[in-house]
Amino acid sequence: MLERKPRRKISVTKMAYSPFYFIGQAFKNIWRNVGMSIASVLILMACLLVTGAFYSVERNINYNLEGLGGLNKILVYINEECTEDQIRKIKEEAENCKGALEVTLITKEEALKDEKDKMGEEFSDIFEWLEEGENPYRASLEIEYETDSDVAALEKALKNIDGVDKIVSRSDTAEKVEQIKDVVSKVFLGMMVLLFTVSVFVIITSIRLALSARKKEIVVMRYVGATGFFITVPFLLEGALLGLAASLAAFGVQYYIYGAVFSGVSENFLGLLNLLPASALSGTLFKSFLAIGLVTGLLGSTVSLAKYLNK
């Protein structure tokens, strides 16, 4: 026969708290003030959506700027009909232009490969198909110039080279985009701070209501010797659950809206404006949403509980 282990003696100092108890209490709190709970989630969601929109716009602006070339760079697209010899000649001519520091040739194959790397796994099928057939990309030259050189004169000289098709320089488009980006950043940041503050306050109010609904229970709990941990955990969990709900809902909405915008843009602005696929943004967005949601929720409950913790 098996020897029977003596049952562990129940001691009041040993914690036998069940996580289910705490989660159950947290849900009870949420349900008791369901209107306030919904309001908390919705406002936090708005905060997260603004953050998410900001991040998406920022990432896509950068992505499109990259295509325009970096700082002090002019991109020169070469006519499709040009042979390799002609291209080499164009490169030499560009090197001789006044102000040009360094000229790098980007071949059709390199252009295709770059784009493929940028778009990521999801679109590799399309690129495989492109690689098999005619390469739609053109060869180009990347010209770095001295900071204080006459960019306009350089552009003109480059344009006059035989076989040059189109010139894209940062001096016009990029700077304008940078300016817009700056304004957009400030507006978004302001909205984020405002909504975040409002979220914290709404959650504080939510938890306060839950606390006052349980005032009598809390008094008795304290008198019979419940620990601060036991008393506060349901309320911390309540804040965390509200934050979690807002994160998940906001992520779903953001994912759906971005998908719709992405397909709209791909159909209508092909080539002019390129958007990153949702998968390139979703990882960071998901993690940030969770972090912001949980931090906001916990911050709200901690502030509300401070009064009780101080006793």
Binding site: V12, T13, K216, V219, V220, R222, Y223, V224, G225, A226, T227, G228, L309, K311
Partner: peptide, 19 residues
């Protein structure tokens, strides 16, 4: 804050208004 609850478990308190 941490030791008070364990002290209180030594005492059973009966509230005047029952609670």
């Amino acid at each position: 804050f941490f030791t008070l609850p364990y002290y209180r478990r030594k005492i059973g308190f009966v509230f005047q208004d029952f609670r």
